[in-house]
Amino acid sequence: MSLVLLVVVGVLFSIGFYLLMQRSLIRIVVGFVLLGHAANLGLLLAGGPAGAPPLLGRHLPGGERMTDPLPQAMALTAIVITFGVTAFLLALAYRSWLFLDEDKVQDDVEDRRVNAEARRGAGDEYASHEVAEEDHG
């Protein structure tokens, strides 16, 4: 049981990180959601095997073990946090789409400038033109 969950956590982590590396913002959002699931499942696993409900003042018949409530409480809090942040990410992706007409992570302007300067050094007319346009834009 625990081994299955462990494998699931590992698979979720790998898919999540893979999606995070993509350019499309929606894929990044999905990747983040999967990563959140992986972390929450990990928290649940941290509590050990399941047992009786952890209620204060309850006497358990011989040998039965209570579930550890703390990791569940932490997982609940973490779920709420990831939920809120996912909503924000979606809003950000929408905003980005409104602005840029595409939901992709853009090239970094500074990287492009350095790149273009290197090309300009090699006498590339197009590169300097590109930089000039960006400066005005």
Binding site: G16, L20, A38, A39, L43, G47, A78, I81, D108, V109
Partner: peptide, 25 residues
């Protein structure tokens, strides 16, 4: 553009933080 990158990087580290807490526990 800057905000998107910042949010994604911070979120990744937050997830790692959460995982580390789970492992510590």
């Amino acid at each position: 553009h800057a905000g998107t990158m910042y949010v994604v990087v911070s979120l990744t580290s937050s997830i790692l933080f959460l995982t580390t807490i789970g492992l510590t526990y």
